[in-house]
Simulated scan of single mutants.
Amino acid sequence: MIGLDDKADLRIYLQDARDALLWKLEGLSEYDIRRPVTPTGTNLLGLVKHVTSAEAVYFGETFGRPFAAPALWITGDAEPNSDMWATPDETRDRIVGLYRDVWAHSDATIESLPLDALGQVPWGKRAELTLHRILVHVIAETQRHAGHADIVRELVDGTVGLRNGDDNVAPGDSAWWEAHRNRLERAAREADRGA
């Protein structure tokens, strides 16, 4: 045993995912954090807004501790995808600040309840879930969106990595990466011809 309880372990993973997601905004202009870089409109600030809304529901409303945040479109309470992008009047500071406020609220919920506490998710087939299950779900969702942010940020300005000061990628300059990408392209074409 490493000395940490299960709840503490889960909170470490949740906070790592939160921090990774916010790091992807650092150093970018308002335009770059908002601009859609995929056909479905995925953008960095929208990802933060979405996970803010998700945490507010999962650690707030689910456990009888409502927290005011933009509505999740998936609940049917908002326009489709409205939680996946920021309007011009929703500033970076406002969204990031709200996300940090949600963290504090979520962390208080997690701290105050045992992992087997039951909550009522306001939608879905499995509406009654434990705090443990909710924690695992929110960690997975936040990590998934942090992965989206990894790709979006790379497309925006070429920045890659796990977190500030720890890029967790192979060393190489731009020429090395171009050669690596070309090698992968050749391998993909060769595999396609052999299929």
Rank of each mutant, 00 (worst) to 15 (best):
G3R: 09
L4N: 09
K7W: 04
K7Y: 04
A8I: 02
L10N: 08
L10C: 07
I12S: 02
Y13D: 09
Y13R: 07
L14E: 02
A17L: 00
L21Y: 02
W23E: 10
E26I: 07
G27N: 13
G27F: 13
Y31I: 09
V37Y: 08
T38A: 15
T42C: 06
L45D: 07
L45Y: 12
L47K: 08
V48P: 05
K49H: 11
K49Q: 12
S53C: 03
S53P: 00
A54R: 01
A54H: 02
E55W: 00
F59M: 05
E61L: 08
G64N: 00
P66G: 03
F67G: 03
F67S: 00
A71I: 01
M84K: 05
T87S: 10
D89E: 14
I95M: 05
I95Y: 01
L98E: 06
V102W: 06
W103N: 10
T109D: 01
T109N: 02
T109H: 03
I110Y: 04
S112Q: 14
L113G: 01
L115R: 12
D116T: 12
R126Q: 13
R133K: 14
R133W: 10
L135A: 04
V136L: 15
V138C: 13
V138F: 04
E141H: 15
Q143G: 09
H145G: 14
A146K: 05
D150N: 15
L155F: 15
L155I: 14
V160R: 15
G161Q: 13
D166G: 07
N168V: 04
V169G: 07
A170S: 10
A179W: 01
A179V: 01
N182F: 08
R183V: 04
L184N: 11
R186C: 05
R189Q: 14
R193S: 02
